[in-house]
Simulated assay, not measured.
Amino acid sequence: MTGRLIGIGLGPGDPELLTLKAVRLMRAAPVIAYPLAEGGESLARAIAAPHLPGGQDEIAIPLCMSADRAPGQGAYDRAAPRIAAALEAGRDVAVLCEGDPLFYGSFLQLLARLGPRHPVEIVPGVSSVMAAAARARHPLSARADRFAVLPATLPDGALRAAIEAAESVAILKLGRHFARVKALIEDMGLTGRATYAERVGQPGERVLPLGETGGAAPYFALILIYRGAEPAILASLAAGDAR
């Protein structure tokens, strides 16, 4: 009998945004695993902490935040055998995942390495996109609107084309790309239809119109844009500007 590899979606940061199923499976698992920021703490474990019963074995996965894929791949190469040993001993391993396990999630790395040989269960989580929209009261789309999720790492030409191809857009992974992306949005005349959000559900949360921002942005920041014609969404954005 092999244990289950369980990907637990934790949401963007607020411990109250976990699902009942996520809490139940996470508490019952004898082993938990989670990413650990280089030289820092684990945001995933901090989100889960209020729900953890104590006494579980823990596997931390130290990650190097780099544009180069090699260091991150190496971290999962080293973690996979430790998790596999627990699974092969018949112990479930709950992998704590910020946001949703399959939405730009690091759980994909473990799924590729361990999924073919072990049972897998995945619990979806509230994504930062949905949490930011709710916090800002920024409707994402309606009726026939197309919705696109884009990484800020794309070059300007690709970003512009993708924004122009959809009525509603979320741009993630801002970080060092923020000034460039903000300038592109301004050049497209969309600043008035854009909302900025950072660290949603975490300490230091900020949600405001893009035009009111300045300076740098963290990695956990995103921009929501609406460029369609749905009157209810336009009215909501206008109300947001007035706040």
Rank of each mutant, 00 (worst) to 15 (best):
T2W: 05
T19H: 08
L20I: 12
L20W: 00
V23D: 06
V23Q: 08
L25G: 02
P35E: 15
A37H: 14
E38W: 12
A44V: 13
I47S: 01
A48P: 12
P50L: 00
P53D: 07
G54M: 00
G55H: 08
I59A: 11
D68M: 07
R69Y: 02
A70I: 00
G72Y: 04
R78P: 02
R82T: 11
A84K: 10
A89G: 13
A89H: 02
R91W: 01
V93S: 00
Y104S: 12
G105P: 04
S106Q: 12
L108P: 02
A112C: 03
G115C: 06
P116T: 03
V123M: 09
P124S: 05
S128H: 05
V129C: 10
M130A: 15
R137N: 15
A144N: 02
L150I: 11
T153A: 15
P155T: 09
L159S: 11
I163Y: 07
V169T: 14
A170Q: 00
A183H: 13
A183M: 14
G189Y: 09
G189W: 10
T195I: 00
T195V: 10
Y196K: 00
V200P: 03
V207T: 14
L208R: 11
P209I: 03
E212M: 04
P218D: 08
P218W: 08
L224Y: 06
I225L: 15
E230W: 07
P231G: 02
S236T: 08
L237R: 02
L237F: 05
A238Q: 13
A239K: 09
G240W: 02
R243K: 01
